[in-house]
């Protein structure tokens, strides 16, 4: 497995309301080598920022992030070739009117020849069983099909790491299952944030993020327990019903 490392990474942003920059991620150090890594935590806890750091979409204010030794600031192009990113909403990710065209767009940088590119796109769509839907308007697809289409476009360029930001949040139960099965069949290293604790339980390692810090790091079952406890403790205590 490729190694993603965080070396005392801090992310802070300027805001108009406070004089001091707001700290989103606070001195996090990590070494991620497992194949399936889950990231859980409340909304606004910093999950998304952690994921975006892996792909260079967010750059550290201090510290550094590397993927297979490549620095996400200095070698951002290499990093983005190796790290595919799937967003929560596939419609913001699919920039072409049909899936096939979107997959071909992904391949434009790596495959210059038109015929080869078409064949590569065909193969990428076929791998996820999407050939029949390839020429439909992305607006005519179901949520799950769209998410798979976005996945196909990302996988087409063969990244070694796949980052997914709450990929199942907008999906219904059946589409979730479809996505889960597809992900289970992939060889890539997967780093995924999710609110779906069942999905989190299938991971090899789970990080719990709270207010910009990793508050738990370990096996899936223990992490989910920890997160459940955290959520209970955060609420006003023991009101009788």
């Amino acid at each position: 497995m490729p190694a993603v490392t965080f070396d005392r990474v801090t992310v802070a942003v300027e805001t108009d309301n406070t004089p001091e920059p707001k700290v989103l991620i606070d001195a996090v150090s990590l070494e991620l080598t497992e194949q399936r890594i889950g990231v859980i935590g409340a909304n606004g806890s910093g999950k998304s920022t952690v994921l975006r750091l892996v792909n260079g979409l967010v750059q550290p204010t201090a510290g550094k992030v590397t993927v297979d030794g490549a620095d996400t600031v200095r070698n951002v192009r290499t990093v983005r070739r190796n790290v595919g990113f799937v967003f929560t909403d596939p419609l913001s990710q699919l920039v072409m009117p049909t899936g096939r065209e979107d997959v071909e767009l992904s391949l434009r940088r790596s495959v210059r020849n038109g015929t080869e590119r078409r064949q590569a796109a065909e193969a990428a769509l076929d791998r996820l069983g999407l050939l029949e839907l390839a020429d439909q308007s992305i607006y005519e697809l179901s949520g799950g099909e769209r998410q798979l289409m976005a996945l196909a476009a990302v996988l087409a360029v063969n990244p070694s790491v796949l980052v997914l930001d709450e990929p199942s949040t907008l999906l219904d139960l059946r589409n979730r299952e479809l996505l889960r099965r597809t992900l289970a069949g992939l060889d890539q290293q997967i780093i995924m944030s999710t609110h779906d604790l069942e999905l989190a339980l299938e991971m090899d390692r789970v990080l719990v993020i709270e207010e910009g810090e990793v508050v738990f790091d370990g096996g899936a079952a223990a992490a989910v327990d920890h997160y459940r406890m955290l959520c209970r403790d955060g609420l006003p205590a023991g009101k009788p019903r």
């Binding site: 792909n55 979409l57 983005r80 070739r81 967003f87 909403d89 913001s92 920039v95």
Partner: peptide, 19 residues
């Protein structure tokens, strides 16, 4: 907002950045 999302999605896929 749409433009920014699109820009971020392109950047994430390694498209649209200057070579």
């Amino acid at each position: 907002a749409f433009a920014r999302q699109t820009g971020e999605a392109l950047a994430a896929r390694g498209l649209g950045e200057a070579e």
